[in-house]
Amino acid sequence: MQSTQINIENSSNIEGLNEVENKPKKKLSYTKWGYIFIASFFVIYLIFTLVPQLLTIYDSFFDYDPFSGILVTDAHPEFCGFLNYQRLFQENALGVIEIYQTIGNTLIMWIIGAIPQMVIALILALIFTSTRLKLKGTGFFKTAFYMPNLIMASAFSALFLMLFSQIGPIYTLFKDMGWIPEHFDFVVNKTSARLMVAFLNFIMWFGNTTILLMAGIQSIDESIFESARIDGASTRRVLFDMTLPLLKPIVVYVLITSMIGGLQMFDVPQVLTNKAKNSGTRTIIMLLNDYLNMKNYGRAGAISVILFIITAVLSIFVFKTINKKEDR
């Protein structure tokens, strides 16, 4: 009892241990494995994304334009400062400022697709989640509405192009009904072409938006609605006083991410209207694509950088709405 409570086994053993102790001690550490496991991602990102990104930005300050004042060969572009950016905001031979035109087109087509899409998706999300209506078959409808989102956009557009062409069935139907004038071309007419692009985007994305909004509604505590109802709020009041305000962050999130996606609109207008050379549906990415095909990397780079800046600003909004959501 008087000695220590810990039984140390006797000394011969201890001397042996001491010898081992003199050797340099290594530590057991898994740190290196973390680096090993994430290495592939970062190496590939560096080579295939980061380097090209930096090259794009670098390019945007060099003149590749064979018709520009400072004429250079393709192999030796010259530093030109912000010339590429300035040129983008100048009128071209047709008297059009291409960057404004394409961004304008993109935004117009996005808005006429996204606004109805948001409204309808909201209505759908509300009636799907309504405990009053208790609709049957919501699973089927959700599945049906989401399907167009997975369809190849270029194929969907090609289909539209054919259905609305001069010999397509929809064209024939419209003509027979007398809704359109003789020799009307859907993809050449500015308004109809824009409407078609917007409509296609609408069809492809409203199901997706519905599902996102439903998740948003379901994440709201059910008891909030119940207590509002017990407090005497009508269905309409619950909708406008509770559901919509609580849903606002998600709606903003969905809208902005949709806008970021919308800015990158390419497949649909490309397939649908590129052959028709419709200037009313030319998007910013189509412009970029054209410059790339001309090997004018400077101008293409400048467009990419502008697009990146717009996206970055919008993304900050997204993160802010997300953070607000967390505060709630």
Binding site: N13, L17, V20, E21, K25, K26, K27, L28
Partner: peptide, 21 residues
């Protein structure tokens, strides 16, 4: 061996185990 040893020694069967997986 799931947590590394900051100081001191661990012997199992008389063998130093600090850095052993």
């Amino acid at each position: 061996g799931l947590e590394d040893i900051s100081e001191g020694d661990l012997y199992i069967d008389g063998k130093l185990m600090n850095a052993v997986e």
